[in-house]
Simulated scan of single mutants.
Amino acid sequence: MRLAILNHGYRRRTKLLFAVIRLFSGHPVPDAAKLVFYRPDFYGAKAKLFTHEAMRGPSTWSVADRELMAAYISTLNHSTFCIRAHTATATQAYKDPDLVQAVLTDPDSAPITPQLRATLAMLAHLTQHATITPAHIHQVLAAGASPQQIKDALAVCAAFNTTTRLADAFAFEVLTPESFEAGATYLLKHRHR
Rank of each mutant, 00 (worst) to 15 (best):
P30S: 08
P107Q: 06
L16F: 04
L188Q: 10
G144L: 08
A182K: 01
H136A: 10
Q115D: 10
A142H: 12
A118Q: 04
Q149T: 02
P114L: 15
P40Q: 06
P134N: 15
D65L: 00
A124K: 12
Q149V: 02
T164S: 11
A155G: 10
A124W: 04
A182M: 07
A182R: 06
A54G: 05
F37W: 09
A130C: 13
A45S: 10
P28V: 04
A88T: 01
H129Y: 10
Y72Q: 03
T133E: 09
D96L: 01
P177I: 06
T60G: 14
H27G: 04
R165Y: 10
Q101T: 15
P30D: 07
V156R: 06
T163G: 10
D31Q: 05
M122L: 13
T105N: 15
P147W: 09
L187Y: 00
K46M: 08
E173L: 10
A118N: 01
S79D: 06
H129L: 09
A90K: 05
S25A: 06
T162W: 05
I21M: 14
C82L: 05
R13I: 11
A54I: 01
V174K: 07
P111K: 14
G57Q: 05
A110Q: 11
L104K: 02
Y38T: 03
L35G: 03
T176H: 14
F18G: 02
L16V: 05
H8W: 12
H136K: 09
G9A: 02
L166D: 05
Q128C: 11
Q92I: 08
I73A: 01
L6V: 01
R2D: 10
L175F: 00
G9K: 05
A110C: 13
L188H: 09
R12W: 08
A155S: 12
D65K: 00
N77H: 04
A54N: 02
L188R: 12
T51R: 04
Q101P: 10
T162K: 06
S179L: 03
H78R: 13
H52S: 08
F172M: 03
V29N: 03
V103L: 13
G144Y: 07
H138R: 15
A32T: 07
L154E: 03
P177H: 11
L141K: 12
I132N: 14
L120E: 00
A121K: 02
H52M: 03
H86G: 01
A167M: 03
M122A: 07
I112W: 07
S146F: 03
K15E: 15
H8Q: 15
P40S: 08
Q92M: 13
T127I: 04
L99C: 08
A145V: 02
L99R: 04
A182E: 06
A90F: 01
A54F: 03
I21S: 13
T14K: 00
T127A: 08
A142R: 10
L6M: 05
Y38G: 01
S109V: 15
V63L: 11
Y186Q: 15
A110T: 05
A142G: 09
Q92R: 13
E67F: 04
A85V: 02
T14E: 07
V36M: 02
E181N: 13
L175W: 05
R22F: 00
V63I: 10
E67W: 04
L35S: 00
C82D: 00
E178L: 09
A169P: 02
A70E: 04
L116A: 08
V20F: 11
